[in-house]
Design a protein around this nucleic acid. Structure first.
Lengths: 133, 133, 133, 133
DNA sequence: GTGGTCTAGACCACG
DNA sequence: GTGGTCTAGACCACA
């Protein structure tokens, strides 16, 4: 059961993106275990006061990105550890990483600080094991 | 003089954002030095075949973000090292950083790989000195 | 006796369609001979952990398509070679064929490869003889 | 400009799928050339009397499948010949091919007939050249 | 009860 | 003018 889905309507980021980010986070940190059931579209729509169509869009995106899978008539479930990762997505993430680190550094953030956050984030994620380049 | 402004029209990211990212990158890596003159709106519009309004919006944003400053009638120039950094922007960047690292790690990227990229990016940026947390 | 009924719950295709496809395949390839008895609805439901209603719907469809026949109180049996074929179904199949071959070709599949698969499939099917256009 | 988009509301296949199939067909056969502009969402919605949201869904699917690309604020355009083809999609198509050919053969379609249709379809598609397995 | 499809209609960002 | 997002509300297929 998910408890923390925080939506900020004033945030310019689309609602369905915020939902995606939230759920991704829960999956990455292991708060949601593989094959665990996600709240149904309707249920989440009710608890968040977001339109079901918007929730559904977030779920469909998450499915096509391999984070969850859908069983017709049953619901949505957390996908097991990803296998065939889209190399484009990896490059995209590395680009985002470089841009963020570059700007942080330029704005005066201490190197030690950045590295520490990166390491903490890594150690908190990937509770399922499995390595790849 | 700027030579590499790469715009991808197919990219869903707005063009003015792509321009901002490009110029930020040039400033962060020191390819553009403090107080160096940027190409005029008109000039950049011509060389890139982008609508001048779009260029202008990018410049306006960069100015309000403290990356460049405008001298009316003269043109736009690279700002010196930033002083009063918006703490909200820093938090935003840290969030982006955490999300990207988390997802990379989850998708199987090696920790060594991530750390290496972070360190390389840091060492390549901030040629102006000055540290802050 | 049927041994291989592979159901993938994650597949968006309805379960009863998957069952139909499976059984059709077994009939077409001759793994199930004419007048051979199919497992009962109850039995198949048990071995596959699928709702009996779902199995029944698949059987009903297969009967109306002429692949099996039902003897009330006895069970379901493989129909002998089809005689009066629904011409609409044939047109439908030709359309599917054209669409699949067209897309394969467009996506770069070698002509030789496609033809080979088609010929292999033909030679492996229709063990009962009987030709029609 | 597209003229022939035939939608059959009685067809159980979802409308957006019919639209996708139609446009795919036009692209595969070369009726729509690479980089040619597709009708806008609104325009196609009007000429077909289909809701714009439904058209948009079809377009988004086509984009994620690599058949078209979207330029924000400009419209949708036919993608050039596909490069990195999803191997899962190829397998899916081969499966569809096998199933259709198998059933056709079983229903009595002449082998010569099937092969002829396959060859005609291949020769009519892929006007851009380029081979792959 | 679950997700999937579709419509009508609105507002916004972009260029 | 273009696509993108969001809502409200409806109906259907599936299990």
């Amino acid at each position: 059961m998910i408890s923390i889905i925080a939506i900020d309507l004033r945030n310019p980021k689309p609602i369905y993106e915020q939902i995606k980010d939230n759920i991704k986070q829960l999956i990455i940190t292991g708060a949601l275990k593989p094959d665990e059931k996600l709240p149904s579209v309707r249920e989440l729509a009710q608890t968040t006061s977001i339109n079901p169509n918007t929730i559904q869009k977030a779920y469909r995106d998450l499915e096509s990105d391999g984070f969850i899978y859908t069983v017709s008539g049953r619901g949505n479930f957390v996908a097991p550890s990803p296998k065939n990762v889209d190399s484009k997505r990896l490059e995209e993430l590395y680009d985002i990483l470089r841009a963020a680190v570059g700007e942080l550094s330029y704005l005066g953030a201490a190197q030690s600080n950045i590295i520490e956050i990166v390491q903490n984030t890594i150690s908190r994620s990937r509770p399922q094991g499995g390595n790849k380049t």
